[in-house]
Amino acid sequence: MRAVLVRVALVGVVTLAGGGCRRDMQDAPRYDPYEVSTFFKDGRASRHLVAGTVARGQLHEDAAIYTGKSADGFVSALPFPLTHAVLDRGHERYDIYCSPCHDRVGTGAGMIVQRGYKPPPSLHEERLRKLPLGYFFDVMTNGFGVMPGYAPQVPEDDRWAIAAYIRALQRSQHASVDDVPPADRGALDAPAPGAPSGVKEAGHGAS
C-alpha cells in the first residue's frame, strides 16, 4: 500500500514538473531575424560575419567587378554583356535607390534634395559624361562627398546595371538625329505624346 502511494506521488510530481516546462509552439526556441538576443552582449540575434569570412562563390578574385578599378584606373566596360534586360534592371534600381536625390532624369533635383539635402551635380554635366563606367560604380560602392556608399543596399550586379542606365540617361539628354535608326526617323516628326493637341491628357500621376 505504501509503495503504491509513493508511485502515485512520483507520477504526480513528474507530471507537475513536466507541466512547468511548457513551451508555446508559436514561440519556438530559435531566433527570428532581428530578434533580441539575451545571449550576445549587444543584444542582436542577427550577427555580423566574422571579419575575413569568405562565403562560397564570393572570393571576389576579379577586383575590377567589385571595385570598378583595374591597374589602369577605372574600367570603362561592363563586366557582363549589355542587354535590354540589364538596362531595364538598371532603370528600376536607379528609380529606387538613386532618384530620391538625383531625380528620375539625373538632374539632381530629387525629393530629398528639395527637402534640404546638398544637391548633387547633374549627371549630364560635361565632366560626368566623360567619366568611365567604373567611376560611377566606385561612387555607388564607396560614396562620394556627402553621398553615402550604397554597397549595403545594392548588390554589385545591380550597381553595374545602374551605371549602364546612367550612361543611357546621359546619352538621352545629348542625342542627335544620327542616334535614331534611319527606319524610325519618320516618327520624329510625329507630335510628341502629351504635346498640346487639343486632346485632354489622361492624368495618372499620384495626386
Binding site: P33, I112, R115, G116, Y117, K118, V146, P148, P152, Q153
Partner: peptide
C-alpha cells in the same frame, strides 16, 4: 529586411 540605422542616416545625416 528592417533597415539598419545607416539607411536612416543616408538622408538624416543632413536632414
Amino acid at each position: 529586411g528592417v533597415p539598419p540605422t545607416q539607411t536612416c542616416m543616408n538622408c538624416h545625416a543632413q536632414i
